[in-house]
């Protein structure tokens, strides 16, 4: 039991720290690598939540495929070094944004802490294993699953329109 709690705080701290550092880097390459660290820590949290399938997907899709694309884009575009985003100070818009973000964070923490005392009311179905996920996906959510195919087709067409050369 205690082990779980320690791991939770450790992984949570790594995820938050890495995410904050992503924003504060001067070199976009470091940002990408730190984002991978953040994703891995999240995958660890999913394991703790008894969702191994989600953890593996997180590593393969986010940590693997998507971040490789990010790295390629950063390398191909040869993005110049940027000024790191200063969290405090800077333009009025940014300060306003930071203030709002902090307010939202406090609000959510407060609400979720209150919730911890009440407990979740909904009976969440157990969907941890691949088999159960498959079953839910092809029964309860079969229409959503099929509708996603149209979404992906639109994304494909859109990507081709945006990426092709002017004739």
């Amino acid at each position: 039991m205690a082990m779980d709690v320690y791991l939770f705080y450790l992984l949570g701290a790594v995820a938050i720290a890495a995410s904050v550092l992503v924003v504060g880097q001067r070199n976009p390459m470091y940002s990408v690598l730190l984002l991978i660290v953040s994703f891995m820590a999240l995958a660890g949290l999913y394991v703790l939540l008894n969702a191994p399938f989600l953890a593996v997907t997180q590593i393969i899709i986010y940590g693997g495929a998507i971040m490789v694309l990010f790295l390629f884009v950063v390398m191909l575009l040869n993005v110049p070094r940027e000024d790191p985003a200063r969290l405090f100070g800077g333009s009025g818009t940014r300060r306003f944004g930071v203030a709002l973000a902090v307010a939202l964070a406090i609000e959510l923490t407060w609400a979720l802490r209150r919730l911890g005392a009440i407990g979740l009311r909904g009976e969440l179905p157990d969907v941890s294993s691949v088999r159960l996920i498959g079953r839910v996906l092809f029964t309860d959510y079969r229409f959503a699953f099929e509708a996603t195919s149209v979404l992906i087709l639109v994304a494909l067409v859109g990507a081709i329109v945006m990426a092709r050369k002017e004739s």
Binding site: A144, A147, L151, V154, V157, M162, E166
Partner: peptide, 23 residues
Amino acid sequence: LVIFIALEIFSLSVYVLTGIRRT
């Protein structure tokens, strides 16, 4: 969930239509 997928289907279409004039 279906509302969200529908939202994304038309949003993606409209994003691309907005920038469809490449020049």
